[in-house]
Nucleic acid binder design. Structure first.
Lengths: 69, 69
DNA sequence: GATCCATCAGTATTATAATACTTATTTTGA
DNA sequence: TCAAAATAAGTATTATAATACTGATGGATC
């Protein structure tokens, strides 16, 4: 799970909910440019920023022990 | 999954691997104070910082659709 | 091809995470 | 209980995420 994949998930989930980046920005109180950077895999968000987005997107973070080492 | 819980997981996993904070700091190249703040739930790490730690700790991040809406 | 709409990109500023260093404090073992 | 080891905490500095603002780009519809 890297930054690229997380960006892709945020993008997919936002579209699934029929939200514009601007909508998500207002609802989550995260700047639109920050959202763009995350979605494009160019961002390195803090957990707080990510959880603001996830709250609106109905997503959650799980920490798991890595398989297949 | 909030900052407190992630901190607890990092702490538990580090101890399970018999690592001192200093060891984890050197291996992950994350500052020891940063680790302390994360473990005590007072930090707000970036995904990059977290993934450096998770790499050493053998942990991974999963994004899941939230249940109980 | 003009207009509207959504996304993307540049730049400057602000907020804050991360670091380096030092000094407590707590924990542990002899 | 003393000393050493490990963790925590204070302060200052640096790096960078997040924001605000502006302008550009791409696509669709008329």
């Amino acid at each position: 799970m890297d930054l690229i994949e997380i960006g892709r998930i945020v993008n997919e989930r936002r579209l699934m909910l029929r939200l514009r980046q601007e909508d998500l920005s207002e609802m989550s109180e995260v700047n639109m440019k920050t959202i763009q950077q995350i979605e494009s895999g160019k961002g390195n968000p803090s957990l707080l920023t990510l959880s603001k987005l996830f709250e609106i997107l109905g997503l959650d973070i799980r920490v798991v022990v890595k398989q297949t080492e």
